[in-house]
Computed example of a mutant assay.
Amino acid sequence: MPLMPGSEPYEHEGGEVGVLLCHGFTGTPQSLRPWAKHLAAAGLTVSLPRLPGHGTTWQEMNRTRWEDWYAELERAFENLRGRCAEVFVMGLSMGGCMALRLAEVHGRAVRGVVVVNPSIVNDVPLLKLAPVLKLVVSSVAGVANDIKREGVTELGYTRTPVRAAATLPKLWSLVQSELGRVTQPVLVYHSPEDHVVKPASVELLRKVLGANLTVRECADSYHVATLDNDAPLIFEGSLDFIRAHASVPLQRD
Rank of each mutant, 00 (worst) to 15 (best):
K148V: 00
Q184E: 15
N145P: 05
P125H: 02
L39K: 04
Q251V: 08
P199D: 05
L73F: 10
Y10H: 13
D228A: 00
R50W: 01
Q59I: 13
K37F: 09
A246E: 01
S47H: 06
R75T: 15
D194Q: 11
E72P: 00
W58M: 04
V215G: 04
F241Y: 02
N62P: 06
P192D: 04
H54D: 05
V116D: 12
A71M: 09
G24V: 08
T57L: 15
S7Q: 00
E217G: 13
G151P: 06
E193R: 10
V137Q: 10
M1N: 04
L3H: 02
I242E: 00
T158A: 14
T214G: 03
S177E: 14
D123G: 14
G142K: 05
V17N: 12
V89Y: 12
V124M: 12
A42V: 09
A219D: 08
L92T: 06
A85S: 14
P192I: 08
L127K: 02
C218V: 14
V162K: 01
E8F: 01
A246S: 15
R101N: 15
L80F: 13
D230C: 08
A71N: 10
S238I: 03
C22R: 01
L133P: 03
A42L: 06
P52R: 11
E203P: 02
A231S: 07
R50T: 13
R216Y: 07
D194E: 13
N62G: 15
R216W: 07
T160L: 15
E193I: 08
V110L: 02
V19W: 10
L179D: 03
K198W: 07
K207C: 00
A141W: 13
E86Y: 11
N79W: 13
R108C: 01
V140T: 12
R181A: 15
P5D: 02
V19P: 07
A36N: 11
P52Q: 11
V196Y: 07
G96R: 08
G14E: 04
L204P: 03
E74C: 14
R252D: 09
D253W: 12
M1K: 04
S139W: 15
R33S: 13
R149Y: 08
V110S: 03
G27D: 11
R252K: 15
L126K: 10
Q176E: 13
